[in-house]
Simulated scan of single mutants.
Amino acid sequence: MSGPSESARDAAGPPASGRGRLGRWRDQTAALGWLVVVWNLLWGDVNWANAAGGVLVGGAVLAFFPLPAVSFAGRLRLRGLLVFAARFAVELVSASLHVARIAVQPGYRPRGAIIAVRLRVPTDLNLALTAEAVSLVPGTLILEVDRDSGTLYLHVLDTHGPADLGAARERTRTVERRIIRAVGSGVELRRVETDESERGTSP
């Protein structure tokens, strides 16, 4: 009885290894693409020179500073990606105008605060994507990421009370929800949607 079982395992070995290599290449390609996008956003201009520079810098980062393996178990959803991109652009412009108003308003001293936001999908990929998306919006800065508990610690600019702190936490969870709707797995999407229905908030 042990012979057939061992033969079956031996026969299944090479395909699994191939899928593992394919998965690693896919993850590396996705990581490089995201680094190129972040590089262009940091420069504030999308052109061929910045794209080429992003490929070089991203390749160097992945080669010399390898990150822990982060698998992608979700799937791309075009509608979710478009909604995320549109809402992100609107929030980017709105937050930029708000920070600019604070900078030029005479005698105004904004109060900052540090808050903790525990994400509903504590995977490495979701932590990284949510942290990047939140930190790219002016007025919010990621200070620390607790990988074990799936918690982001943020510095938020211009807060006046508990209502503003609650709004900042909700904005972060909204960004997470949009990311999951764009690239999350079915299980992750159900987890986010179930949590929202229990909280009674609109998507």
Rank of each mutant, 00 (worst) to 15 (best):
G59A: 03
R171W: 15
L127G: 00
R171S: 12
T123A: 07
L62S: 01
W39V: 05
R19C: 14
G13F: 13
L35D: 06
L165R: 11
V37M: 09
T29L: 15
W48A: 14
P66L: 08
S71V: 10
S7D: 12
I142T: 13
V57Q: 04
V121D: 00
V55A: 10
I115Y: 04
G186S: 10
G161V: 05
N47W: 00
P14H: 04
A131C: 01
G44C: 02
G107Q: 06
L78G: 03
L81D: 02
S135E: 09
Q105E: 12
H98S: 13
L82S: 11
A133P: 00
F65M: 14
N40Q: 15
R87T: 13
E196S: 08
A8V: 08
G166C: 05
Y108D: 00
D158P: 03
G18V: 10
G58S: 01
R77L: 03
V57E: 05
A182M: 04
M1R: 05
L56C: 11
T201L: 14
G33M: 11
R21Y: 11
R177H: 10
L62F: 08
R147W: 03
A163Y: 08
H160I: 11
A163V: 12
E198S: 13
G20A: 13
V192E: 00
G53A: 08
T140D: 05
D124G: 06
A128R: 02
T29Q: 14
E170C: 07
A168D: 06
A85N: 15
R111C: 12
R109C: 11
V93K: 01
H155K: 13
V37F: 10
S197N: 08
L56S: 09
R181S: 13
L136F: 05
L62W: 05
H98K: 12
A52Y: 05
R77E: 06
E144P: 00
G20N: 07
S5V: 13
V175A: 06
P66A: 09
Q28D: 11
A30W: 10
R101Q: 07
T151K: 00
